[in-house]
Design a binder for these strands. Structure first.
Length: 825
RNA sequence: GCCUGGGUGGCGGAACUGGUAGACGCAAGGGACUUAAAAUCCCUCGGGUGUAUGCCUGUGCGGGUUCGACUCCCGCCCCAGGCACCA
């Protein structure tokens, strides 16, 4: 027989047993008609890269705890899972292994689904989605056409971010520190034609509604606010001397307009070359533009290049004072922002200041700081009183902005203008493994959407991946040759596919009825389940995915598919999993494989440790020893239950109420109270677990007192059952098994969250701290609610305190009820 | 440079609205059990000190407010993440 202290629970058998039972009972399947309040819990779905990693384990464990907790609290919880299944790695693997991306992807999905099931996550697998399936992306194509018809999608030629390694275009949001978000290779600018989502049409709404997102981390809201980058100012037209053309600029500082001493335009600006053409400066400007283009391709994102430019030889006229302003083209002016031209006010803009210094352009002060102090060798960018500004002199910056803009409006050469930093979302990708863009080009009728009857435009399967980095679609005639839906003539299909961020921008809505075959969204299901009550994922998606999803939600709303504004009411951004001080990565060789851990310790132990080691929003330092500790704790509980099973399942109602029993009972109620508070308050599972550990410690030490009858068996049982209930969301197999062992036939899944009694939770005696001048000098025991006067007396008469004070006069005594007495001498 | 977070034992982390700093766990040391080891159980565990039921010191650094500050205010340093010529 195994000695008692060597009992360790058979997690493999127990976990298998309960996973099968949940599966057969369809425990986590939900529908819309439930009486209970709905709760839509969602974790960001994974890319099926092959195997789950620790980041997934952590993310999905956090989610599963919330799902199970909310069920125990009586909510109708929808907890779906699926696959963000389009993307480059599949294509690369296909080339390398001479297989097809679909095969690779679906094999990965099968494997990873098995891993997630092995973790015991309570998903409603009937709602599973794979975005690479035509049943999914056909609706995306239909939606694309809807958006196109509504003018929310257009095609244009621009300079794009090109990743040479991935052979594709990237959106601005997908460029991180000048490198590709996926492969980390340097991004270069490239002139290209592509499709754009008019996300800027929603810029204002996306910004103002950020205020509604009280359930989001402030950090994420701030990041989005910066990304949207709203600037309020004016648009002013400057006539160009000896020309019918005008130069239009955007400025946030119309109050400094009298200080403009030159103009600067982007090298890509169409006027840059035109103005210098056939003049003495043409060569200089040409050289400069060429040089800048090369420099930008090699742009070292670590530091800003020195400001430089070239004079075009042309002048424009400041419409406010008639001053002649030389027009320069300058390397720090961006074509993509505003109008690609800037009025330069060297006295009040640091960039212009530096540029003016280099080219000996005068600086003209037009703003006087309230303090009267102007910086010595840099621009003064703050507000102040206008000087040297004609009729506007004497005004404050604020009123001057309005007055000067108003003047332009009145005279017809300008108007108030708001500009956003946000640009439209370019979604064309020159790759195979993505949703085909449902458009075609007819020689006669131009660009046309594919007719809806023809959807989905399926990805052809008879493709060869011969040339690394080249999409086979571009050369596959059977794919691109098609007929025009308008005239029936010959047409060429679009061979680019969509950015994979498109699929993840609406999957949360599709989950509400993923099998729906009459449209993109089943409106009834969507109006029941949406918005997502709690969304969980990595903070790295703070801008990309979360901003796109907010945009898509509004677009779907405006097309009548859904009736919400914001997709995710509450957002939890979980921290990274760290090992040896660095993010787990193959290159650092510090990766921990969850499967190995599950095999060695079981899913529950892995879950418990990843919850216990840190609060969810912080980085988690992985520790193999810590996992041992979690395993030890579970075994300790398991052993206790089995060792005392007779006592715990006895039918006797004990009348014994000694102090040990009362203390244990009190601890039970205190634990429920603290646990419930901590889980509700930002999901602080780590402190929840430590409070249960405390309860277990109390329980064990109560029973270890010699003379086994000291503790009331009924209270012991209550303690054990409380532990089992509280831990159920975290270590569900373990708790389900113990619950059964304790003789229960019902399940813990629904409406079983324990309640606490505030009266029982109250201590009847407390340690009161006695301080002298704020320093702890003694302690005393007193009943809860002891009157201030009485506490004062007790404190003053305390032996140690008496010794301490001697015959010094007491100036004041401060009493904090049930906590402390502070004697001031 | 700007915007967010964050600096607490050897380590991960606790500390409710200003009221016993270091809960819980890990590691370490000592002990019990054992032929031995593992497992389990018990004790110690911020630093200092003359071993004390004592005292001093201690939450990145320097000031301040307060009877009392990890917590609030001012100034700095460091770390992580985000943005980075946005006119």
């Amino acid at each position: 027989m195994t000695p008692d202290n060597e009992i360790s629970y058979d997690f493999a058998a127990i976990e298998k047993k309960w996973q099968q039972r949940w599966h057969h009972r369809q425990s986590f399947k939900v529908n819309n008609q439930d009486e209970a309040p709905k709760y839509y819990l969602l974790e960001m779905f994974p890319y099926p890269s092959g195997r789950i990693h620790m980041g997934h384990v952590r993310n999905y464990t956090i989610g599963d705890v919330i799902a199970r907790y909310k069920r125990m609290r009586g909510f109708n919880v929808m907890h779906p899972m699926g696959w963000d299944a389009f993307g480059l790695p599949a294509e690369n693997a296909a080339i390398k292994q001479n297989t097809h991306p679909a095969k690779w992807t679906f094999e990965n999905i099968d494997y990873m689904r098995g891993q997630l099931q092995r973790m015991g996550f309570s998903y409603d697998w009937d709602r599973e989605i794979a975005t690479c399936s035509p049943d999914y992306y056909r609706w995306e194509q239909q939606f694309f056409i809807d958006l196109y018809k509504k003018g929310l999608i257009y095609r244009k030629n621009t300079t794009v971010n090109w990743c040479e390694d991935c052979q594709t275009v990237l959106a601005n949001e997908q460029v991180i520190d000048g490198a590709c978000w996926r492969c980390d290779n340097k991004v270069i600018p490239k002139e290209m034609n592509g499709w754009f989502f008019r996300i800027t049409a929603y810029a204002e709404e996306l910004l103002t509604d950020l205020d509604k997102l009280s359930g989001w981390p402030e950090k994420v809201v701030t990041m989005q606010r910066h990304w949207l980058g709203k600037s309020v100012g004016a648009e002013i037209n400057f006539p160009i001397e000896n020309s019918s053309e005008e130069l239009r600029v955007f400025t946030t500082r119309p109050d400094t307009i009298f200080g403009a001493t030159f103009m600067s335009i982007a090298p890509e600006h169409p006027l840059a070359l035109k103005l210098s053409q056939n003049g003495p400066h043409e060569k200089e400007v040409r050289d400069f533009i060429a040089r800048t283009r090369v420099a930008r391709q090699r742009a070292d994102y670590g530091e800003e290049p020195e400001k430089e430019g070239a004079f075009t030889g042309a002048y424009c006229i400041n419409p406010y004072n008639g001053r002649k302003l030389p027009i320069y083209t300058a390397n720090f002016v961006l074509m993509e922002y505003g109008s690609g031209a800037v009025m330069a006010v060297p006295a009040h803009d640091q960039r212009d200041y530096e540029f003016a210094g280099k080219y000996n352009i005068p600086r003209l002060q037009v703003i006087e700081a309230a303090s009267g102090k102007m910086p010595e060798d840099q621009a003064y960018e703050g507000p102040g009183t206008l000087i040297n500004s004609g009729e506007f002199s004497g005004m404050q910056s604020g009123e001057a902005k309005a007055a000067i803009t108003g003047y332009a409006l009145e005279k017809g050469f300008g108007k108030p203008k708001t500009t956003f930093r946000l640009r439209d979302w370019g979604i064309s990708r020159q790759r195979y493994w993505g949703t085909p863009i449902p458009m075609l080009e007819c020689k006669k009728c131009g660009i046309q959407p594919v007719s809806k009857a023809e959807l989905p435009v399926k990805l052809p399967t008879d493709v060869k991946f011969e040339q690394a980095g080249k999409s086979p679609l571009h050369t596959l005639a059977s794919f691109y040759q098609t007929t025009c839906p308008v005239c029936g003539g010959q047409a060429r299909r679009e061979t680019d596919t969509m950015d994979t961020f498109v699929e993840s921008s609406w999957y949360y809505a599709r989950y509400t009825n993923p099998q729906y075959d009459k449209g993109m969204i089943d409106k009834e299901a969507a109006s029941y389940w949406l918005p997502v009550d709690q969304y969980i994922g990595g903070v790295e998606h703070a801008i990309l995915h979360l901003l796109y999803s907010r945009f898509f939600t509004r677009a779907m709303r405006d097309l009548g598919y859904i009736d919400i504004d914001e997709p995710f009411t509450n957002l939890l951004t979980q921290g990274m999993v760290i090992k040896d001080g660095a993010k787990m990565s193959k290159s650092k060789g510090n990766v921990v494989d969850p499967s190995i851990l599950i095999e060695k310790y079981g899913a529950d132990t892995v879950r418990l440790f990843s919850l216990f080691a840190a609060p969810p929003d912080r980085d988690l330092e992985w520790s193999d020893k810590g996992v041992d500790g979690a395993s030890r704790f579970l075994n300790k509980v398991y052993r206790f239950v089995h060792r005392n099973l007779d006592l715990l399942t006895a039918d006797t109602v004990s009348e014994k109420t000694n102090e040990t029993s009362r203390a244990l009972e009190r601890k039970i109620h205190q634990t429920i109270k603290k646990f419930s508070r901590d889980i509700e308050n930002d999901f602080h599972f780590n402190t929840c677990i430590s409070s249960v550990m405390e309860l277990v410690n109390t329980l064990l030490s109560s029973n270890n007192l010699k003379g086994a009858e000291t503790v009331d068996p009924a209270i012991c049982r209550m303690a054990v059952e409380t532990v089992v209930k509280l831990l159920y969301p975290m270590v569900p197999h373990f708790c389900a098994e113990l619950w059964e062992t304790l003789g229960h036939t019902d399940l813990l899944d629904t409406l079983s969250w324990p309640q606490f009694d505030p009266e029982t939770a109250k201590e009847d005696e407390l340690t009161i701290v006695i301080q002298v001048r704020g320093k702890v000098r003694s302690r005393l025991q007193a009943a809860v609610g002891t009157a201030d006067e009485q506490l004062k007396d007790m404190a003053v008469n305390d032996e140690k305190i008496k010794k301490f004070i001697g015959d010094t006069t007491i100036k004041k005594i401060i009493v904090v009820k049930d906590r402390l007495v502070n004697i001031v001498i």
